[in-house]
Amino acid sequence: MKICVIMSTYNGEKYINQQLDSIFRNERNYEIELYVRDDGSKDRTIEYLRNYGIKHAVPIEVNEGENVGSAESFLMALRECPKAEYYAFCDQDDVWIDGKLSAAAEQIGTTNQPVLWCSDYQVTDSDLHVMISSVLKQPVQDSVRAVFYNNVPGCTMVFNWALMQELRKVNISNIRMHDIMAINVALITGKVIFDKTPYVLYRQHGNNVLGYSHKKIQIGKWIKEKLELIRNKEDYSTAEYARAVLNVFENQMNESEKKEYELITKMNSGLISRLKVLTRPYTKDKFGRTSISIRFKILLNLM
């Protein structure tokens, strides 16, 4: 059975060899293929990838592309990667702990039901010294809430071909993040399995595009980021995303889900619609950087 590891790279030469080592030593009972979409790297990332594949005689397919950002790059990779029984999202700078892929594949099994597996993870510094030994206590289990709040990073996710087929039905080009769509669609069409074992060393360093440290509240930095966001709104639209999901999966939703998705699709239409969304329980979370940012973006139509 094949597991296709999906990676988006961008100027990742500093840490990528460690991640590649951890991928290809991770599993001997499955055929592992790495599919990479490079997001316009200016360093030697592509050279490192190709040389690694030749040196270690492992299958690495590299697709060079223009810089479109992490979310769109992963979305492209998701739609272009080859067929496999299982898929795993992968970041360029983390390290996987041995046994991740076999644990995921065995727990997912050979079912035709769409299944997404995820694990706990450990936050480390740039030298892989563990700073937080366990982060994820329970993944989000509400498909509507998952549109706004996803606590499962893509680097912990493994899913089956059945879910891949459902993900490819969503007709949208700009999304907030690929991992949000993955768990969102899994919750609508199938199920999510959570393994409490930490299988990923989630490296934090000065060049992270996204990461755990981005969840911390730093007032000055937060205000600066939001002023920049007001000036330059991000490309994705949560309302458009909700409409795309509703168009495909409406018949698999219960009446309550459909009602809430319909409400979300109207977020761009005016302040009253956004205020209605803000009253819903799925847009509320405990006080913190993420909850403040989400509600701010909803109110000002920035997401």
Rank of each mutant, 00 (worst) to 15 (best):
L136C: 04
V185T: 11
G12L: 00
T124F: 04
G206V: 04
L75E: 14
N17P: 00
V115D: 00
L271E: 13
T124E: 08
K266E: 14
N67M: 12
N251H: 13
R274Q: 09
A77T: 13
H129N: 11
E72D: 15
N63D: 15
V185L: 05
I292Y: 03
D285I: 00
L78E: 10
N51T: 05
G69F: 07
Y86L: 14
Q122I: 03
E13N: 04
A146K: 00
L275N: 08
K284R: 14
E257D: 12
N17G: 07
G270I: 09
R274I: 10
I223T: 03
E234N: 10
I60P: 09
Y30D: 06
S293P: 02
E80W: 08
Q19R: 12
I188N: 03
Y199V: 00
E72M: 15
E106W: 01
K226A: 02
V36W: 05
Y87D: 00
N171I: 00
K2C: 05
C155N: 05
G65D: 14
T156M: 01
W96G: 01
V170F: 07
G190F: 06
K191V: 01
T238L: 09
S293M: 04
E66I: 14
V5L: 04
E61C: 07
W161V: 10
I292E: 06
L246H: 05
R79K: 15
R203C: 14
R25V: 09
P198S: 09
Y35V: 04
I32P: 01
V185P: 08
V152N: 07
L278P: 13
K55N: 10
V147F: 12
E47Q: 13
Y87C: 03
M177I: 03
C155Q: 00
I188E: 12
Q19D: 05
E64L: 14
R25F: 07
N26P: 04
T45I: 08
E27T: 09
S133D: 03
R44A: 15
K276V: 09
V245L: 01
L302Q: 07
G109K: 09
L163S: 12
I264L: 11
L246G: 00
V170A: 07
V185Y: 01
L227I: 11
Q92A: 11
A239W: 05
N17A: 06
Q204G: 10
E66N: 15
V277Q: 04
L201P: 05
E66K: 15
D235G: 10
P139Q: 05
E61T: 13
W222H: 05
M267S: 08
R289Q: 13
L201T: 02
Q204E: 15
S213M: 11
S269M: 14
T156G: 02
I60N: 07
I219W: 02
F74V: 11
N160Y: 08
G69E: 12
S73R: 13
H205Q: 01
Q122L: 06
I16P: 01
K100C: 11
N208W: 01
L75I: 12
T290A: 07
I180T: 12
I6E: 04
R280N: 05
L300H: 03
R280T: 14
I180L: 13
K286S: 13
S70T: 08
P153C: 04
M1V: 10
N150V: 11
I272V: 13
L300P: 08
S119H: 03
G109V: 10
H214Q: 11
I97T: 08
D195N: 15
Q18E: 12
S269F: 06
F249P: 06
F24R: 10
Y149P: 05
A103N: 14
V209S: 06
S237K: 14
